[in-house]
Design a protein around this nucleic acid. Structure first.
Length: 599
DNA sequence: CGAGTTATAAACAAAT
DNA sequence: TATTTGTTTATAACTC
């Protein structure tokens, strides 16, 4: 939800330059440091883990013999791994930031990106940090008295340093108006909360997890005192690390350590981004930003090099559904002129243009489209496909498709008649949409292979010279087939695809090369039964009450008599079969309503 | 310019 | 009977 924010260089400087420290502030700092140290540990652990993972992945890749690294060949597993890693980054960062915020140390300031840190303290390595620690612990007094004008340490490349002149943040002075970067709220709150929390912290942490006491060792930076029990440690803590100048200085340095780690995190994230770009995996990193990523640039970005800084640096404001207007206003500055026109046909195709899945974009801009009444730059076919793919069972009734449209796109909350008609037309017209019937009704699935073939509209059918109609003796355009016949080999692949697509909705169109995969969904489900019961609840309106899986279905295959090439697919072979309807589940068709004219 | 694609509208049929 | 669902045709706008 929220975007990663890091203490800005300016903020850091502010903090570091504070020379006049009131006792309260010192206490606050002390308290903050405890948390910071904890975070430092977390970050360090994380870095280790991350690097291990990256190495592992690279190794795997090499072992797998993917040497040319053809971009399309990123395996599903790799994608999964990457995504997990991404999530880890995000989670860790969010957690970190939350902590910082809670400490009153940091307030979110939209418009500042982690990347801005790069200008600051570039190459600081642990050795330097340690050195820094030594200096501080040994010569703290000197430093205290001296550094009014230096940034307090090594890395301070200054990054703008706009507020350098304001040292001595005196908390006793009521309004820090001169320090726009040091948020008033943070300071005052930090003071109160810091004091209040100090008491509780010490109690809470008692015995078990005092962040400064672990494995019988005092974890105060630079101190490695060993203590048998917690009380001894406490004594030590209160004695050796009491509230004095030295401790304060150490605290400041500790902040810098944290800053370094954050910087490193930013770097690693960038590296990750570059890796993914290289492997052609679209990044989920920017999260569901309310802003639409500029579609054009995002395309070119993924096509070319990570030259331009990726959307990573977007200064997102955390939006909630309660602020639907925000994205709208933003839209006008960011989105392409194309998508801006809320009216008019969506001429600009997106999906097949670059043989790119639209999924990432849809997902990335999900929030935006949900709130802003902007016409999505995707074709109806792409959208329908997305709806179906997102559904837990890869199948939707018409009404569910409608609902998906209205839910996901503000734009489709009006002119229902128009776009619903278009949806129906598309469903009928496009070969890739397969209608399946069971005894309870019909729903739509997608034959993704067909979709990817690009020839969406079945031409053969379209101009089937009405006069000639009689030539076609075949009973109907619909054949009933039993899905689970004759698909043995394809099954596992299909299974994989299905699983992958359900687990990683972002990468739904990862290439899996067996024909008619998605129309096999039912067969797959039969095989797996409940196994496929992913908790992907949110995905689509597919009726909540729909029981596991219908036993058997009829699949309506759009026949294409004029197109001989189509006999390659197994679908054309199958014949009619019927199956027992063992289930008495109800698909609630009427789950919807109210969508139609929600204004 | 022509072919192909897409959106839109409308007519129609079948199902609900 | 009215509505929903599905199919088909026509046409305009657009791209390549």
């Amino acid at each position: 939800m929220m975007t990663p924010q890091v203490i800005t260089p300016q903020q850091m400087q502010q903090i570091l330059q504070q020379q006049v420290l009131s006792p309260q502030q010192l206490q606050v700092l002390l308290q903050q440091q405890q948390a910071l140290m904890l975070q430092q540990q977390q970050l360090q652990e994380f870095y280790k883990k991350q690097q291990e993972q990256v190495h592992l992945q690279l190794l795997q890749q090499q072992h797998a013999g993917i040497k040319q690294q053809s971009k399309e060949q990123v395996s599903q597993a790799q994608q999964l791994a990457f995504q997990q890693q991404l999530m880890q980054v995000q989670q860790l960062q969010q957690q970190h930031l939350l902590n910082l915020q809670r400490q009153g140390l940091l307030t979110i300031q939209p418009g500042q990106s982690p990347l801005s840190l790069h200008s600051l303290t570039q190459g600081m390595i642990p050795a330097e940090l340690q050195q820094l620690w030594k200096e501080v612990t040994n010569a703290h007094v000197k430093e205290e008295n001296n550094n009014n004008n230096n940034n307090g340490s090594s890395g301070g490349a200054g990054g703008g340093g706009s507020s350098n002149g304001h040292r001595g943040l005196d908390l006793s002075s009521p309004a820090p108006t001169k320090n726009p970067l040091l948020n008033h709220h943070a300071v005052t709150n930090g003071q109160y909360m810091g004091l209040k929390r100090e008491c509780s912290t010490l109690e809470d942490h008692s015995h078990h997890n005092h962040p400064l006491f672990g494995h019988g060792v005092c974890k105060w930076p630079g101190c490695e005192g060993v203590f048998d029990d917690f009380h001894t440690f406490l004594k030590h803590l209160n004695g050796e690390h009491a509230l004095d100048d030295r401790s304060t200085a150490q605290c400041r340095v500790q902040m810098q350590v944290v800053q370094q780690l954050e910087l490193q995190l930013a770097k690693d994230k960038e590296r990750l981004q570059a890796m993914m770009t290289h492997l052609h995996v679209k990044s989920t990193e920017p999260k569901a930003t309310p802003q639409p990523l500029n579609l054009v640039s995002s395309i070119t970005l993924s096509k070319t090099a990570p030259a331009a800084s990726p959307p990573l640096s977007l200064p997102q404001t955390p939006t909630t559904p309660t602020t639907p207007l925000t994205p709208l206003s933003q839209a006008h500055s960011v989105i392409t002129p194309n998508s801006l026109h809320s009216v008019g046909p969506m001429r600009r195709r997106y999906s097949d243009k670059y043989s790119m899945p639209i999924s990432p974009d849809i997902v990335q801009n999900k929030e935006f489209y949900m709130n802003a009444e902007v016409r999505p730059p995707f074709t109806y076919a792409s959208l329908i496909r997305q709806a179906i793919l997102e559904s837990p069972e890869m199948q939707l009734t018409l009404n569910e498709i409608y609902n998906w449209f209205t839910r996901m796109f503000a734009y489709f909350r009006r002119n229902a008649a128009t776009w619903k008609g278009a949806v129906r037309t598309n469903l009928s017209l496009h070969k890739c949409f397969v209608r399946v019937e069971d005894e309870y009704g019909s729903y739509w699935t997608i034959d993704d292979e067909e979709f990817k073939r690009g020839r969406h509209v079945q031409r053969g059918r379209r101009r089937k010279c009405p006069a000639n109609e009689s030539l076609d003796d075949s009973p109907a355009l619909v054949k009933n087939i039993q899905t689970s016949l004759a698909y043995g080999p394809a099954l596992s692949a299909a299974f994989q695809a299905s699983m992958a697509e359900n687990n990683i909705p972002l990468y739904t169109t990862a290439s899996i090369g067996s024909p008619s995969l998605n129309s096999l969904a039912n067969a797959i489900r039969e095989e797996m039964n409940g196994a496929l019961d992913h908790g992907n609840s949110n995905g689509s309106d597919s009726s909540p009450g729909r029981s596991p899986l219908p036993a058997m279905h009829h699949i309506s295959v759009k026949e294409e008599p004029l197109d001989p090439e189509d006999h390659e697919g197994p679908l054309s072979l199958v014949t009619t079969a019927n199956h027992s309807p063992d289930f008495d589940h109800h698909r609630d068709y009427e789950d919807d309503q109210g969508n139609d004219d929600m204004l």
